[in-house]
Nucleic acid binder design. Structure first.
Length: 555
DNA sequence: GATCCTTTGAAGAAC
DNA sequence: GTTCTTCAAAGGATC
């Protein structure tokens, strides 16, 4: 199970060799080539196209072309050095020395002149961090944080939910703002703002507790017993946590008494159905709170997605229907996906989530172990919090909530007839290619091959099912049904499926074509050295279908 | 409007 | 212990 050592991740990189982020030799070779980025891009594109057109002729050129997929590696290196230096300086500053969780990106505090000036004991920078990471941290004292210099944009305050974050913004984004690209110092998201503009008067006001977290399913008495998932940081910061009365309390707004980070986690993530609605389930603006009008379960058209308080008073619902749907806590990849999706979408003309997810999946594997560790840790905390909030909840509870997925019928029925799979005819992009410049901040988007996820992350689980080990995400799963296991000392075993996915057998590998030219080269991160090794070991297999856009023939 | 697709990871069931 | 299945998010595509 990919859980980080709760001890704080000191072992994240202790014993494992750190594969060089960038192969110097490779870079030198690349420099010597002195090929322009555009040409590289063209090469990559044509290579990919050729691969899909002609499977047989691409294999040996692929390895050579790999390095060319990073035409901006030099600038990336510079950027990386810059941030490394920034990190070093920041750490030298003593503010965040020796973080318990090295994976947490203390280096990504983008703006130490954040308008949210503390009136407390924290230095502005520290306060900035807290405000950014745990926007609700100062909720109880938010009235005292008012700073006329940082008026919250009204349009944001009014529409951006406090608990349910805006579209494409991960609800935990404030918690996992690993990149300053997510943070615009000038326009802090309203949910980070200590105050909210009254939509009518425009006067900043203290957020109503119900807006901060309008729902908590916890019994008041249970709240106090919950250990703060992020207490390590709270304590480290010397920031007093919200004092939760031992033995519980009877606060009209339990969320107010919940510590902040938990509040943000809970309020943004977990279903409102679990919670006794606040006295008013409408947002103070009168607009239904986005979190309350949660998407819930699409497959539950029975009205469960409406807050109980908003339902018609007619209680003629079965208990089953009333049974709240508690969603699973997000795993690390999901957290990553939520945060990075917008980026990928912004950089790419692709709109299909399936395609985006493929890119994200590949990038996920390209993340360094530290980067992944951040998400593993967040996911772990989410699970921890989830288990604390819903002690009796089991993932099994959600089984069957969705309509049965099609693949359930797949094993013996081929998908003909209804919903015939679109043949993955390669289509050359008519749309503008994804030519958005890669991030220049050394973000994950540009991350060159680094130790693969499974390899890199100490928390990475051994791939237990075939779907979980697809190191070359955009590739076709070759025929057959084999799994090759790779293991390194101290590394989780990695299963590289050389066959169809068990749960998706008979399924086209790529049921929809992905226009390669819509993929920025940086999105097609080259496989990690480990992946390359794996790839090499199965060269012949992958050679036959290196980057196929051809639908795997159904059987 | 409902479902599929696609990704990885977690959890549970089944073997 | 291993394998398999389901669900979590997202949104365009498809039925």
């Amino acid at each position: 199970m990919p859980q980080l050592n709760g001890g704080g991740g000191d072992d994240l990189g202790a014993n494992d060799e750190m594969i060089p982020f960038k192969d110097e030799g490779e870079q030198e070779e690349k420099i010597s080539e002195n090929v322009s980025a555009e040409r590289d891009l063209d090469d990559v594109k044509s290579s990919l196209v050729n691969e899909s057109e002609n499977n047989s002729s691409s294999s040996d050129s692929e390895a050579e072309r790999r390095p060319q997929t990073r035409p901006d590696s030099e600038s990336y290196e510079k950027t990386r050095d810059y941030f490394s230096e920034a990190l070093r300086r920041q750490q030298d500053g003593g503010l965040f020395k020796s973080p318990h969780y090295p994976g947490y990106p203390f280096l990504m505090i983008p703006d130490l002149t954040n308008p949210y000036i503390s009136n407390g004991s924290l230095s502005p920078s520290a306060r900035t961090y807290l405000q950014m990471k745990w926007p609700l941290l100062d909720v109880p004292t938010s009235a005292g944080i008012k700073d006329s210099r940082s008026p919250t944009p009204g349009h944001l305050s009014n529409k951006v939910p406090v608990v349910q974050h805006a579209h494409h913004v991960h609800p935990l984004t404030p918690l996992i703002t690993y990149s300053n690209e997510h943070f615009s110092p000038g326009t802090p998201p309203s949910h980070l703002s200590p105050e909210i503009l009254d939509p009518k008067t425009g006067i900043p006001r203290t957020p109503h507790p119900s807006e901060l977290s309008p729902y908590y399913p916890l019994s008041p008495g249970a709240v106090g017993s919950i250990a703060h998932p992020l207490s390590w940081f709270m304590q480290q910061q010397g920031q007093p946590m919200y004092s939760i009365p031992p033995g519980g309390f009877r606060h009209p707004y339990p969320a107010l008494a919940m510590n902040a980070s938990m509040s943000s986690l809970v309020s943004s993530r977990f279903s409102p159905h679990m919670v006794t609605p606040p006295p008013h389930s409408l947002h103070q603006t009168g607009i239904p709170h986005p979190a309350i009008v949660s998407p819930a379960i699409k497959q539950e058209p029975s009205g469960d997605n409406i807050s109980p308080s908003m339902k018609s008073p007619v209680p003629a619902k079965k208990d089953e229907d009333k049974k709240p749907h508690i969603k699973k806590p997000l795993n690390a990849f999901m957290l990553y996906m939520k945060e990075m999706r917008a980026k990928v979408v912004a950089e790419c003309t692709l709109k299909e989530s399936a395609a985006i997810n493929q890119i994200l999946g590949r990038r996920w594997h390209s993340l360094s172990r530290e980067e992944q560790a951040k998400y593993y840790e967040l996911a772990r905390k989410e699970r921890q919090l989830h288990s604390q909030l819903y002690p009796g909840w089991s993932a099994r509870d959600n089984y069957g909530k969705r309509k049965k997925r099609k693949r359930e019928n797949k094993p013996d029925s081929k998908p003909e007839g209804k919903r015939t799979k679109k043949q993955c005819v390669q289509y050359l992009p008519s749309e503008k290619m994804c030519d958005s410049p890669a991030s220049s901040h050394g973000s994950m988007l540009d991350s060159p091959a680094t130790p693969s996820a499974a390899l890199a992350s100490p928390a990475a689980p051994a791939a237990t099912h075939s779907e979980q080990a697809q190191p070359l995400s955009l590739t076709t799963k070759p025929e057959g049904r084999m799994q090759h296991h790779f293991s390194l000392p101290g590394k989780p075993t990695i299963s590289i499926p050389i066959g169809t996915s068990s749960s998706q057998s008979n399924t086209p590998i790529l049921t929809r074509p992905i226009p390669f030219t819509s993929l920025h080269p940086s999105m097609l991160s080259p496989p990690s050295p480990f992946h390359q090794a794996a790839l090499h070991s199965h060269h012949s297999l992958f050679q036959s279908q290196p980057l196929s856009l051809v639908t795997k023939p159904t059987e």
